[in-house]
């Protein structure tokens, strides 16, 4: 594995399997009364979140704490960044304070890569702009493997605003790497104009795709996109692409519904779908902690001499 986790492209299929296997062993820690192992004792993990996020930040914080690392949360509001400090200067400050790993969430695509030019710490991308969100992609792969027993050969539809989705990028790249078949589904305005290099199919017909899916992965669709002319109305979006109970009935038995959260119930997914047994949205959240523990553990070399 590389020194950093910036993109799904940094990982080989062997790396992905190793991460998922390691996460498997950490999954059990979360079920203990004392949910903690000493693997990263004395190491410092900085959660450097320059864009609002609750679930990802908490997930990383729990992951680091369960590994006994010292955790510092650094958010944009009220910080030096709000006072106009540059990304570089803030990064150098974190470096000077001895961060071993920096988990960065930023609204600008490519900013985690920039960070690696300035700091010695391991950098983990917790979502950069509309580029990638590799830890989300990995926890999704973990969840699919856990529920369906494999990734290779799975037929996965990724439905919604692919254009603006870092989750869709990381997940697509990861699934294709692991041998799954991916179909991107959404209005043509929300599919990137050129995905010829992704190794995926594209469809604008959700009803035609659903009967062939092992996993229907639903992306968040921001209401704001309507204002920006990507589709005429939320109502029409929901009518054409929203995952309703009727549409779920088109899927093969045992097919999963997944969503990276936070959900817009009634837009991209109906409430009664989100709460079906086949939707594994809460499991995704739980698995996220184990996957992030595995990544911190593997990147920080916690495996040397100590075990979970």
């Amino acid at each position: 594995m590389n020194e950093h986790l910036l993109s799904m492209h940094d990982l080989s299929a062997t790396d992905v399997t190793r991460i998922l296997d390691t996460a498997e062993s950490f999954r059990e820690v979360g079920t203990r009364v004392i949910k903690k192992v000493p693997a990263l004792r004395g190491r410092t993990v900085v959660n450097f979140f320059l864009e609002n996020s609750t679930r990802t930040r908490i997930s990383f914080e729990l992951a680091a704490k369960r590994l006994s690392a010292d955790v510092i949360n650094f958010s944009a509001g009220g910080s030096s960044v709000a006072k106009g400090e540059s990304l570089k200067d803030t990064a150098l400050t974190l470096q000077a304070m001895g961060a071993d790993a920096i988990v960065i969430r930023h609204s600008s695509s490519g900013s985690p890569l920039q960070l690696t030019r300035w700091v010695d710490a391991h950098v983990l991308n917790a979502g950069d702009g509309t580029h990638e969100h590799p830890t989300q992609g990995l926890l999704d792969l973990y969840t699919m493997r856990e529920k369906l027993g494999r990734i290779e050969g799975l037929r996965v539809g990724i439905v919604g605003d692919v254009l603006h989705s870092r989750v869709a990028r990381s997940l697509s790249f990861g699934l294709v790497k692991m041998g799954a078949e991916v179909t991107l589904v959404g209005p043509p305005t929300l599919i990137p104009p050129d995905v010829s290099a992704w190794g995926v199919q594209v469809s604008y017909d959700i009803d035609g795709v659903l009967p062939k899916l092992d996993v229907c992965y639903v992306l968040r669709v921001q209401r704001e996109r309507q204002r920006l002319e990507y589709f005429p109305s939320v109502r029409e979006y929901a009518r054409l692409f929203g995952i309703t109970r009727d549409r779920v009935a088109l899927m093969p038995e045992g097919g999963l519904i997944m969503h990276p959260g936070p959900m817009n119930r009634g837009v991209e997914i109906d409430s009664d779908v989100a709460d079906l047994p086949r939707s594994v949205i809460e499991e995704q959240v739980t698995n996220g902690i184990a996957v992030r523990m595995a990544l911190l553990f593997l990147l920080l070399g916690g495996g040397k001499g100590e075990t979970a």
Binding site: S109, G110, D128, G129, T130, H131, E132, R166, R169, P192, P193, D194, V195, S196, A197, W198
Partner: peptide
Amino acid sequence: EGVLSAALGVA
């Protein structure tokens, strides 16, 4: 706008 902008997540 092309293959690379789509992969990099840059408008």
